[in-house]
Simulated scan of single mutants.
Amino acid sequence: MAALTKRSVQPGPSADLQEGSGCYSCQEKWIGYQCNCYFISNELKTWKDGRDFCVSHNSSLLQIQTRNEPAFMKFSTSFYWIGLSYDEEHHAWLWEDNSTLSQDLLPFLKSVNPKNCIMYTPRGRILDAHCEKKFRYICKQQLI
């Protein structure tokens, strides 16, 4: 697996940050980690605008695979929009690729408002907020 350099992780990308993922190189201002590229925004956007930014960069809002993803941000206390939303038709929380959320990954989603969008901190906490509010966001581009 790819190792990170000794740079400290800031709430968002620095202008000179460009690292390889260990599999391929990432776009400028993106962070490579374990064969994925991540963009951690400094800019505040609505959930939809964050999603649109990610899509325009051939990625999606973060889809969490493990409780502390992305692990390199585990010291961040900020909340970020992620690519999870409630699908009324299926009565389920779905990721942007329409896959279902593993029940043990974020079991406390039962207490959030399904009309809201989900924010996540890499320490493993979630919050829900009105989708039109502006927060930072994380894009993830899978390279393999």
Rank of each mutant, 00 (worst) to 15 (best):
A3V: 12
L4T: 14
R7H: 10
S8C: 05
V9H: 10
Q10C: 01
A15T: 14
D16Q: 14
Q18M: 06
E19D: 04
E19C: 07
S21Y: 05
G22E: 05
G22V: 04
C23A: 06
Q27K: 14
I31N: 11
C35Y: 11
C37Y: 08
Y38M: 00
F39M: 05
N42C: 01
E43V: 11
E43Y: 10
K45I: 00
K45Y: 00
K45L: 00
W47I: 04
W47R: 09
D49V: 05
R51Q: 12
R51V: 00
R51E: 09
D52W: 02
F53D: 05
C54E: 04
V55G: 02
N58T: 10
S59V: 06
S59F: 06
N68A: 08
N68D: 09
P70C: 03
S78Y: 15
F79C: 04
Y80Q: 08
W81H: 02
G83V: 10
L84K: 14
Y86A: 02
Y86C: 00
H90F: 10
W95D: 02
E96L: 13
D97Q: 09
N98F: 12
N98R: 15
S102A: 09
F108A: 08
L109N: 04
K110G: 05
K110V: 00
V112H: 11
V112A: 00
N113S: 08
P114L: 01
C117G: 13
R123E: 01
R125V: 00
L127E: 12
D128W: 08
D128V: 07
A129L: 12
H130K: 13
K133T: 09
K134D: 02
K134M: 01
Y137F: 15
I138C: 03
C139F: 07
C139H: 11
L143Y: 06
L143W: 02
L143E: 06
